[in-house]
Design a protein around this nucleic acid. Sequence first.
DNA 1: CTACTAACATACCCGCCGGTATGTACTATG
DNA 2: CATAGTACATACCGGCGGGTATGTTAGTAG
Lengths: 215, 215
Amino acid sequence: MYYVIMKRKSSPAPRKQPRSATAMPDKLAASAFALFSARGIGQVSLDDIATHAGVTKGSFYWHYQSKDDLIKAACAHYYRVYHRRINSELAHITNPVERLARTIETAVNICLMDRANRVFTTEVFTLAVHNPELGRSWRQFSDSVREFYLGLLKAAMAAEDLKTTDPEQAVDFVLSAMEGIKLRAQHEPHLCSKQSKRSIVTSLKRNLGIIETEQ
Amino acid sequence: MYYVIMKRKSSPAPRKQPRSATAMPDKLAASAFALFSARGIGQVSLDDIATHAGVTKGSFYWHYQSKDDLIKAACAHYYRVYHRRINSELAHITNPVERLARTIETAVNICLMDRANRVFTTEVFTLAVHNPELGRSWRQFSDSVREFYLGLLKAAMAAEDLKTTDPEQAVDFVLSAMEGIKLRAQHEPHLCSKQSKRSIVTSLKRNLGIIETEQ
DNA sequence: CTACTAACATACCCGCCGGTATGTACTATG
DNA sequence: CATAGTACATACCGGCGGGTATGTTAGTAG
């Protein structure tokens, strides 16, 4: 162990960040999300995550209390990214029906194309079955998404005369379908083809009462 | 360790089964399925499974080569049960449209009510993402289910004039939706209510071109 | 009766990983 | 400049669980 002898004279590596940039918790959560969604939660150790974030496990435990704690943080990270993505997508669309349509299109795109999203979602879902706290967190997120869609749909119904019977049931059905599409897309690549994607979007819209006419 | 002294005279426990009943592999697979679908694959050890089947781990490895091997067997067990269930449900229904309708109703019932089925499916799905062999096995099963539905739908279309545009896309969409319903039902109990269930069945049928009229 | 083998049980190994105890450098504050 | 607290790193522990090496018994064949 020669490092004891190094009298700590050579290059103390002048830290760029003032050491306490308070960014480390976020960085760890982001690393966790990245690794979880690539290899699965069970296949990623805390050492992996710490290394990916540029620190060690000992330091990890200064910011988080347990692996479960970190998983929750990774979920929060995911929720933030998700909401940001949707919001930026709808930022300058005013027509209510168009807002709803665009949301569906974006969501389908994510389901079919974004592997990281798919894997992470699946992993968390599975874990949440046996982890009540994660389940609550996930359900809270899920409910917020449901409310969001419900708001979009009701606004669209108020603006135009959609062929929707029960908006709540319609939203539940469409959300379920999208979740299922996300799942099956992992193993059935033919769902990701261009025409399949168009067909899916059309079906989802139809179930919300939107009949595609334009184009 | 007194058992060394027991001169093996008292009750050799006359085996009921002729020892080689060849039933042990199936028994182990069934035990695995039971425990996996109750606590999750990652939370069940081989000791647990062996104990549940009435043997020990050493004996387990005489029948299987690894845990992965057993997981595959548990899947096969699941596939068998699934097919038996559907077949027995359709055994004495001849009307093609009714056969399709009954299949949907049964599937929704399973999705919403059968917790073991839901958990096991979710677990295997998640694992299959990172395990190519499991993925292939699952996809094979999934394709067989798809073909089955496609057959039902085409038969129904030939018998009556359904409002179906593209049968393949319709089946894909409906299967995805059911998968998603199964997933969400784990965390959103309101999906399991009677009226929700009816609404889901109606939506699924509508997406296949069946308009509910009777009742 | 003997030998062989299928079908178990016992006992053990070992690597991985979550978690902890402890040391150390950098920074802020008075 | 001394002190204290922050934000790390090192080193270690312990158990859990997959997998193995080695019995031991009950059938079966000759």
